[in-house]
Design a protein around this nucleic acid. Structure first.
Lengths: 222, 222
DNA sequence: TAGATTGTTAATCGATTAACAATC
DNA sequence: TAGATTGTTAATCGATTAACAATC
């Protein structure tokens, strides 16, 4: 595939298109125009057509886009057909939640193993995923050669374990530790989930919202 | 407070500044210049100074920024001094994880109650937070008047519960359901955490990365 | 004081929006 | 065919970067 540099903004919108297309499929919608899609997603039709045109010509003049076909194209762009494998490291609450409820396969990932230090966890199988002893991590990485590691260990251990993953050949880390990983980013792709960043942003928007409400009320009183 | 419209890009960077300032504090750094901060964060000094200047003058010519003072200013901007209260709805794995490990107070939120349908959960107290029966949600919202609800229920129930929260006077929802909430956004601030969006983005960047590696290898072979 | 570094204005760059010919 | 809607080029808008006077 020939690759030209696509902006992060575009990339981050692709999963949102996918979710919307899922909804449309579920609702039995077979085709949609950029203007209707824009209306439903709060984007301009122009932006939608620009976004898609980064990757090819997925629509048809006078018709719009076929929902199923468009879904497939975007899925492909995001790499969901690449059969990535992943292992999950740290079966605490978050790790457990992901193993139990998150459908990795829906997004092109297959979860092949999990690792933990707790003896009551080791040897179990959760939803078909075997839990191994953390001590076996190095060896199992060699066996399984996972593309990605899902890192759910306590934050104080994050930078102890991360290098082991990189040494073990992992190419991507989905990082739930809330700590910045101190590993070279030119050989490993890191995707961070920072709950606190999200909550702090909510705090800002909420403050703004409440100030506006208050300002309107003050104006009323005058 | 007088408010001018600040771009989302700036808002989303503020929590990252806060994290970096925490690290610097912990490392005993008392002051820092925009250029050094930029170097450490991968931003230009210009951008950093522009970002801060949206909110005031926090630095000093010839000196830079005082780490502790800057931290406090940014915290304030994000509303962490507003003593927001929140309740958590749905004590599954994710909900449980947040109650057990997430330090809401660090970010200006106080968790006052949790709700669940499971009888073995109801009546318990987790890390000081009482768990009530989901049936009591309406009543307790009236009593507690929380600013925010943390929504951790299964996705198929998301849009059943969301209106109850809004009716109950909640002004913000931290949404972990992976489903778009169908409630008016002009009266309620919604902050979504979509795990799948993050994993799909990782899939894209990983695909791109592997293609580049492959392309380089192919070039070598020639 | 001299050097460093800010806050801010101006310049550049990139992303979004608008417009329209192509065409289904 | 006529109407609808795309893909793409051009115009606009906003965000980032550069430059520099102000000043600690």
């Amino acid at each position: 595939m020939k690759r030209i540099k696509i902006s992060n903004n575009v990339i981050r919108r692709l999963p949102k298109y996918l979710r919307k297309l899922d909804d449309l499929s579920a609702a039995g919608v077979e085709r949609i125009s950029s203007s209707e899609l824009g209306r439903q997603m709060g984007l301009t039709p122009s932006q939608i057509r620009q976004d898609f045109s980064c990757f090819g010509e997925f629509g048809q003049q006078g018709y719009g886009y076929n929902v199923a076909a468009l879904h497939q194209e975007i899925s492909k762009i995001l790499g969901t057909d690449r059969n990535f494998t992943c292992v999950l490291v740290g079966v605490g609450h978050i790790g457990h939640s992901l193993i139990s409820h998150f459908n990795f396969e829906n997004f092109g990932f297959r979860l092949t193993a999990a690792f933990d230090v707790k003896s009551d966890m080791i040897g179990k199988s959760l939803r078909g995923t075997p839990v191994y002893d953390m001590n076996e991590l190095r060896g199992k990485l060699e066996d399984l050669k996972p593309d990605v590691a899902v890192l759910c260990i306590p934050s104080f251990k994050a930078n102890e374990v991360a290098p082991i993953l990189v040494d073990g050949g992992v190419r991507g880390i989905w990082n739930f530790t809330n700590v910045e990983l101190d590993i070279p980013t030119d050989t490993t792709v890191i995707e961070n989930i920072y709950f606190s960043d999200s909550l702090l942003a909510l705090g800002y928007y909420l403050s703004e919202h409440l100030d506006e409400v208050e300002a309107r009320a003050a104006k009323q009183r005058k």
